[in-house]
Structures are given as C-alpha cells and as structure tokens.
C-alpha cells in the first residue's frame, strides 16, 4: 500500500494485486469510494474461464487463456455495479495521447491496455510481446507519466514515448490505444445481486458455449492435445507446448493456479456477504480444484525439467488436466443450482 496523488492533488492509494485487469477495476472503485476487493471484482466480472486458442500466437506462444477476454471484466463490473464508464480506442497515436493528457488534467485516473514488451519498468522475465496488460495512469510528470501498475508493489514512472509505443504496438490483439475510466459510480451498489449475476454468467461461459475450444470442453480438448503431443510434435516441441500452458496458468498474473485460487477467495467473500453455507462449501471445492491445477503444473514442470526420478509422462499430465475438467464441470453445475436459488 502506497499513497500517491492525482493531477488535482486528490490522494490515491496503490494496492498490490495479483491480476492486472481486476486490480485496475478494483482501484477505480476504491478511488470513487466503493471499497471492493480484487477477488470480488474478479467474481462479479465473471473473470473465470478457459479457452484454448491454438491459432492465435502471442510472441510464439500458443494461447490458452484462463480468463475471459481482456476488457470484459471492467465492462461487466461497471455495468453490474451501476457505474458510468467511458471506453475509447484511437487510430491516431497523437490523438490518443492528447486525450489521455486532457482526461488526466481533470483529476481522473485512467486505465490503459498496453503491450508488455514496451513497458520499460519491467525486467526481462515480464517482457513478452502481448498486448493485454492493464495499468492505471495517475498523472503527467515532467519526465513522462506516473503509473500505478497493480501487479507491482509500488507506483512507477514511465517516459511518454514508451507509453505511446506500448499503447499503439502492432500485432495480434492490438489495443489501438484502448483507454477507459469510470466517470461516476453508485455509492451503495447492490453487491449481492451483482455477485449472483457474475456467478451465473461464469457458469454459462464455462458450460454452455457450444464450441470445443471454450469452457470445460476446451480443457478436455487441450488435455487430449497434451497426451498426443510427444508422438505428434516430438519431445522438445511438446515441452514448449507444456511450458506455454504453465506460463498462462501460473505466470500471467493469475494469482496462482489459473485464477482458481482467486475465484475461491471470491466465493469466500460472497459466502459471507450472502450468508450462504453452500457457497462456503463451494469455495473449499474451488480451492481443491486449484490444488489439482497446481498438481498438473508441477507434473508438467517435472517433465520439462526431465527429473527422471519422478517418472512423469505426458499421459499423466493430460490425465491430471482431465481430472480438473471433471471436477470443474461438477463444480459449475452445483454453482449454477446454488446461484439460481438465490436469484430474485
């Protein structure tokens, strides 16, 4: 926690968060006086998801995402909590930067979608060519901009040229200077209904998309791919595939085990809010699913490290992933029933 201030001198408190977009959204609401934690934002915004997109490559990595598409969490949370928000994209970088400066001068904090590679304050392990990192700009300074990146512990400085570059980087999933901010919020939002809406939406996303690459079906699809991979691609390429999955599962700001722990934390908070013992039970189930994902990532890592004494095979790793799919299917069916009962 670090205290900063915006262009008009209004204090702003920086919180450390696991995930960029839910951290940014939570910071927006806290800035407007609605104290809402990061897991809560993640749950209300229906962040939990799975999708395997082998045709889309970010810097040579096959994408398997454990969250809904970038931008969705903010929009959904703002809508479900009665927030008035602005979302804009630009073709012309100059216009995009001018507009950012104009909005910052009014004392508003602004969220941006940027490319991770071009942000200078990150070290090598963060920097890969992926346009989907969210951050908050607090104010303009002499050298550039003061930035509150929720994935880091403290606010940082970023030169204007680098920020422009990061906003308008070309490639897959271009952000086109994507910029968003909250104009106003309802000071007493109906958190209970918002939670229930978020849960039901998540269940539908995980269970009811009739395409083989999304939701539970997607997990099974990827598990089959992993089992087949050493025969089809050869050992080294199969290891790359596994490393890509682990990176999306553990590294890309997921808070551990592909957002599953964060979702369990949300269910814990929701159970207190809605006074429901069933939700508390489901939160524990989600924690157990998170442990299963962790087991999968450990097994996969052992294959990569080639620690022979453990004798892990691709079939076992794929089997663990199938196990996660089965448990999640049951979990989301239960959650659908519990949330459906509470809906008014």
């Amino acid at each position: 926690m670090t205290t900063e201030h915006t262009a008009t001198g209004k204090p702003y408190v920086h919180y450390h968060a696991a995930h960029c977009e839910s951290g940014v959204t939570s910071a927006f609401f806290r800035d407007k006086g609605v104290d809402i934690s990061e897991p809560m934002v993640f749950g209300i915004g229906s962040g939990i998801f799975f999708g395997y997109l082998p045709f889309l490559k970010a810097a040579g990595m096959r994408v398997s995402t454990f969250r809904s598409q970038p931008g969705a969490i903010f929009r959904k949370v703002a809508r479900r909590l009665d927030g008035d928000f602005v979302v804009k994209t630009y073709r012309n970088p100059q216009k995009g930067m001018d507009e950012l400066r104009r909005v910052l001068k009014t004392g508003q904090i602004v969220g941006l979608k940027t490319n991770l590679y071009w942000l200078p304050y990150f070290s090598e392990r963060f920097r890969f060519n992926f346009s989907g990192h969210n951050l908050i700009v607090l104010r303009e300074t002499k050298e550039g901009f003061r930035i509150s990146d929720p994935t880091l512990e403290h606010p940082v400085d970023c030169p204007a040229a680098d920020l422009e570059r990061a906003r308008f980087a070309r490639g897959p999933m271009e952000s086109h200077g994507y910029m968003y901010y909250l104009k106003s919020v309802n000071p007493h939002p109906d958190l209970r209904q918002a939670c229930i809406k978020g849960m039901i939406d998540s269940c539908n996303l995980m269970l009811r998309i009739p395409l083989p690459i999304f939701g539970i079906r997607g997990i099974r699809f990827q598990a089959r791919k992993i089992i087949d991979s050493p025969d089809k691609l050869g050992f080294n390429e199969a290891c790359r595939l596994l490393a890509d999955v682990i990176r999306w599962l553990e590294d890309t700001g997921t808070g551990g085990a592909g957002f599953r722990y964060m979702y369990a934390a949300f269910l814990q908070e929701a159970a207190e809010l809605l006074r429901s013992a069933e939700l508390a039970g489901l939160s524990e189930e989600m924690t157990a699913i998170g442990h299963d994902w962790r087991k999968f990532s450990l097994a996969a890592t052992r294959i990569i490290k080639q620690r022979k004494q453990f004798e892990q095979t691709f079939a076992e790793a794929g089997g663990l992933m199938h196990g996660c799919a089965d448990r999640e299917e049951k979990f989301f069916k239960n959650l659908r029933k519990v949330a459906g009962k509470m809906k008014v």
Binding site: A17, A18, L249, G255, L298, T301
Partner: peptide
C-alpha cells in the same frame, strides 16, 4: 519486482503472498 499470489493461510482465509511458485 515481485508479483502477488493468493494463498490459503492456516485459518482458511486467502491472503496475498509474494513468493513465485516453482512451476512458474
């Protein structure tokens, strides 16, 4: 530049920690 991770503590509550998992 440490990131944050959700961990279950002994009381069954979730807290943020800064140690990166080995798999990552």
């Amino acid at each position: 530049l440490s990131k944050a991770y959700y961990k279950h503590n002994d009381n069954g509550q979730y807290v943020l920690e800064k140690d990166a998992p080995w798999a990552e």
